[in-house]
Write a protein that binds this DNA or RNA. Structure first.
Lengths: 244, 244
DNA sequence: CTGTTGGGTAACAAACGGTAACAAAGGCTC
DNA sequence: GAGCCTTTGTTACCGTTTGTTACCCAACAG
């Protein structure tokens, strides 16, 4: 799967640039646009996977623009707005928006919504693997994301099973960020229904998997330093990660 | 008590005006400010009771600004940020923020936090996480705030549970200052709704927790010297604390 | 002194996560 | 196909952590 491309439409320069940078950092390709003309230009030139559209555009209503875009091409649209009343929200959905996010929004939440919308249409595989190329280094270890080869600090090769490798990649893609079991499950299985609620057994499967990965990576699996447990939450990779 | 005056610092015009209007509606006096110069001007002209500070300012980092304001005047600061990771939160507290609210926030929640911070006259609990890094020493004991490791006077390692550790940190951050149970509860759970009234059971949970911590730290838990009870109030850490 | 209030704490209960052991499924060779 | 190994999921058991309750005593007011 190629990198998904976002079209960020906002006439507030500052916000537009902030969003652009943020989503680039999240591994998306981003086209910024401020006017209707720029939107058209971008959509002719590039394949656009998702549009982030501010409702409050200077000259024309974002709502109309949304409805219009919707009729022209089947690109998912997430509306962003300072107006958060249910009424506004409904108008947004009526105009064909796939989701509606009120300002001020949490970027991570917005990113999550973007990912959810992309996933919904089978448009993109899980983004967890977005940083899937190259070599990751952490605490003396290294993981070649292409081959899945893992090298221990001494240089020795360690063999991980497919699922263990996937778990490690998911953790490496989110260092220092506690991941809920559900998030891990989604990362491990891109086809998993994001709506689905996690039952007990599924949660334990993650625990067991984490345990096995710890057994291979941690110096002392009984006192894990690398993959830490966040009680009541999930697991974190507790180290710096660099990628080449 | 006169009407508290808030200084709302945000360079996003829209958000700044929204916050200003909202808090005026809540019965606060509000000074909006977008730049460092405006902040200085407002603080010279008015008595400011609390600063609402956006982390993402255009030219300078809100964090630095926060640290700077903190050194100059003892005005409580609540940071508002689009960045919600614990890491960011910690940075906020490290810079001296009294509270940290992630976007998107519920205005009523934000108002509640503002009131909570204003209410704490002694600002004791607000200090809880400010001094979060480094090693604390008290009465021969030491606590490494990063790892949570606790060493007894003899040098032996004592294992505290997560919650016991959090309680100890809260106490260490406020030596000689009696903490109410509510303040302790807030320190233990940053996400706790500050409005929430404490029921009996919740109060007893704190008592039990204190008891357990005493069991591990006090020479004679029946006659506690370190963590003293303030009858009708709460608990105090009754010793000098140094931090490295 | 007496009654009331608040806190100490033992005992229980509930939640959570580690993990051994087993089971199921797939793949490999012969 | 049988036999065997690897991977993965499931379950059950256990220890740890945390919260809840009840009982008792100490502190305090009158």
């Amino acid at each position: 799967m190629t990198i998904p491309r976002l079209l960020v439409v906002d006439d507030d320069t500052e916000l537009r640039e902030m969003l652009t940078k943020y989503f680039q950092g999240q591994g998306f390709a981003v086209c910024p646009a401020a006017t209707g003309a720029e939107i058209s230009a971008a959509m002719e030139r590039y394949r656009i996977d998702l549009i982030l559209l501010d409702v409050m555009l200077g000259d024309e209503s974002g709502l109309e623009l949304c409805a219009q875009l919707r009729t022209e091409q089947d690109v998912p649209i997430i509306m962003v707005s300072a107006l958060s009343s249910d009424n506004q929200r409904m108008q947004g959905y009526a105009a064909g928006a796939d989701d509606y996010v009120a300002k001020p929004f949490n970027p991570d939440l917005l990113a999550a919504r973007v990912k959810a919308v992309l996933r919904r249409g089978n448009r993109a595989a899980s983004l967890t693997y977005r940083r899937s190329a190259g070599t990751y280094r952490f605490e003396g270890w290294s993981l070649d994301a292409r081959t899945g080869e893992v090298r221990a600090p001494g240089g020795y090769l360690v063999s991980l099973s497919r699922r263990e490798g996937a778990l490690l990649k998911a953790l490496l893609a989110n260092p220092m960020i506690p991941l809920k079991r559900e998030e891990i499950a989604e990362a491990l299985d891109p086809d998993r229904d994001p709506q689905r609620v996690m039952d007990a057994a599924e949660g334990r499967a993650i625990d067991v998997l984490v345990g096995r990965l710890r057994g291979k990576l941690e110096a002392n699996p009984k006192d894990p330093k690398l993959i830490r447990t966040e009680r009541g939450v999930g697991y974190v990779l507790a180290c710096e990660v660099t990628q080449e």
